[in-house]
Design a protein around this nucleic acid. Structure first.
Length: 212
DNA sequence: GGAGCGATGTCCT
DNA sequence: GGACATCGCTCCG
């Protein structure tokens, strides 16, 4: 039986049925939630990137639909997970109506709940720097136990899903927009969205524009 | 603190 | 055969 929690208000399909840039912007401050048995793992969304489908050379969907990227062409609100560099999983959500490709990549969370389990999944101590748990797309996926085998194609809006995104009344954040990280195609386009000044933002200080 | 680089699966040319 | 939406380790200053 589901226990009540502060993370019950799932975002609905229509939230995702928009341009990925709009979805990315509005995801900041929401909460990504994973149910692991009786426990919830939850983190505030701090950093995301928009991928624009067939207009965007950096997007996996740029060259058309394949078995790997099919979720990006499907209906909005579904989980697209891919494996990269032989080591890491990356978590995305599909945007736009079925037939139109688009997605948002999640790059960093601020851990809110289930920190012990996240640390264990990362092979780290829960007493260490919490930024090592979920700052960076590969780290975040590992902390939440996200894999392609387990999660690709899941519906984030389904009440039956063990993965969803909630609104919890967090104040609409100040947003910083920058170029995306780690890409070579269309590398200059401003499609990365971060909560301004947040310490859980991934990557280098120069790219985050954070003070020392 | 920061640059350099290896690991290693999957897809595309 | 090369690129890749990454990470963590080594080495250098």
């Amino acid at each position: 039986m589901e226990t009540s929690s502060r993370f019950n208000a799932r975002l609905a399909r229509r939230f995702y049925n928009r341009d990925p840039q709009q979805v990315a912007r509005d995801l900041l401050g929401k909460v990504l939630v994973r149910r692991e048995g009786t426990e919830l793992l939850a983190g505030r969304i701090i950093e995301v990137e928009a991928y624009l489908g067939q207009d965007d050379p950096a997007a996996h969907s740029y060259r058309g639909k394949t078995p790997r990227n099919a979720v990006m062409f499907g209906p909005p609100g579904f989980v697209y997970v891919y494996f990269i560099y032989g080591n890491h999983y990356c978590f995305n959500v599909s945007c736009l109506p079925e037939g139109e490709a688009g997605a948002v990549l999640f790059r960093a969370l601020e851990p809110l709940q289930g920190i012990e389990k996240m640390a264990a999944a990362r092979g780290l101590s829960a007493a260490g720097d919490p930024r090592l748990l979920t700052s960076g797309p590969g780290r975040m996926a590992q902390a939440l136990g996200i894999t392609r085998e387990r999660d690709n194609g899941k519906d984030l809006t389904s009440a039956a899903s063990d993965l969803w995104i909630a609104r919890d009344g967090f104040r609409r954040p100040q947003v910083l927009i920058t170029p995306r990280i780690g890409i070579t195609q269309a590398a200059e386009r401003p499609l990365r969205f971060v909560i301004a000044g947040n310490r859980f933002v991934s990557g280098r200080r120069a790219l985050n524009q954070e003070p020392s």
